[in-house]
């Protein structure tokens, strides 16, 4: 009995509990209105579509914990698949083209990072530039038309194949990357540096952390994840659209914030982002299932952001107060 009690208390002590509770409540609400919501085919749909944007949100979360923003992820999400297709069209084998595409995405992120860190321009501005530039390039190169992505079946399987009922390759990618980042953030020295860089820069520097280098790595990761998500989506849909990922940056930031990442840096978790990503997709899908007009999606996400952040701040205040009291 005592063990269960302590288990409950321990889980309530996790920061992600608020978003997890909202997720649970949402699932129950949708299910009670329309049981089809939890039908095998709908669960399968949810599991299949969530990872693409989830992978992007992982990179954005790390960068936000490190105290910076990346507004360019939506554009990179569209740009990298486009580059990959152009490479394939110019005769490069698909595998090499995908690897090159991902390499280009790291270069894109590296550029954002170096410009931000070396010039001291706020990342909000540099990546806003990135948002316009990479979208602009995609539109200019294609003349606004979609491009078809024909890949050999092995590659399609590798990125978006179905392994077993409810298990898709993109899910495996998402969980593997989430696990990897969780490990880095919570169990390694570099993870501590990320928290320190985003929390108190002076303290971090005093500790001997090269905050500039940490930030550049995070910008690079953020773009790489955006490129990866974009490639998975394009492979799944069989085409790259010049407007692919338009507005995704705000979804990704919203997901990170709902999952408990602070807008000011220094705080946040990977698990929170993963749960929040599922919450966001579930709201979208559930509204369709209960036949609510699609206009409601924004309203709900707005409500969830306000509620989740309010709770997180409430928790933060409580813990600061108790620290001061003790």
């Amino acid at each position: 009995m005592l063990r269960y009690k302590s288990l409950i208390v321990t889980s309530l002590q996790r920061k992600e509990i608020s978003v997890a509770t909202i997720l649970f409540g949402t699932i129950i609400s949708f299910y009670s209105i329309q049981p089809v919501f939890l039908s095998p085919s709908n669960i399968d749909v949810l599991l299949r579509i969530t990872p693409e944007l989830g992978i992007v949100a992982l990179g954005v979360t790390l960068l936000m914990i490190g105290g910076e923003f990346d507004l360019s992820v939506g554009s990179v999400f569209g740009f990298i698949p486009m580059v990959t297709i152009l490479l394939i069209e110019s005769g490069i084998p698909p595998t090499l083209a995908i690897v090159s595409g991902l390499l280009i995405s790291t270069l894109v992120g590296l550029t954002h990072g170096v410009v931000t860190v070396k010039t001291g321009i706020p990342s909000f501005i540099t990546t806003l530039g990135g948002l316009l530039i990479w979208r602009g390039v995609s539109l200019a190169v294609t003349g606004g038309l979609p491009k078809y992505m024909t890949m050999p079946p092995e590659i399609i399987f590798f990125f978006s194949g179905k392994i077993a009922p409810f298990i898709h390759m993109q899910m495996i990618w998402f969980f593997a990357l989430a696990g990897f980042f969780y490990y880095i953030l919570e169990r390694t020295k570099f993870g501590n540096w990320i928290y320190a860089t985003g929390g108190r820069k002076e303290v971090a520097r005093a500790m001997g952390v090269n905050t500039d280098r940490v930030k550049i790595v995070l910008f690079t990761l953020s773009s790489l994840m955006a490129g990866m998500g974009g490639i998975i989506q394009s492979i799944r849909l069989g085409q790259a659209l010049p407007n692919q990922g338009d507005g995704l940056e705000f979804d990704a930031i919203a997901v990170a914030v709902i999952g408990g990442t602070s807008l000011f840096g220094g705080s946040g978790t990977i698990l929170g982002t993963v749960i929040a990503e599922y919450l966001s997709r579930i709201i979208e899908n559930g509204l369709i299932i209960i036949r609510a007009p699609s206009y409601y999606f924004r309203l709900y996400i707005g409500l969830v952001i306000v509620i989740a952040v309010t709770v997180n701040i409430y928790i933060l205040r409580r813990s600061i107060r108790s620290r001061v009291e003790s």
């Binding site: 089809v36 709908n42 749909v45 899908n285 369709i288 299932i289 699609s294």
Partner: peptide, 8 residues
């Protein structure tokens, strides 16, 4: 949306 609709 299409897939969710088919499920529904």
């Amino acid at each position: 949306a299409f897939e969710a609709t088919i499920a529904e």
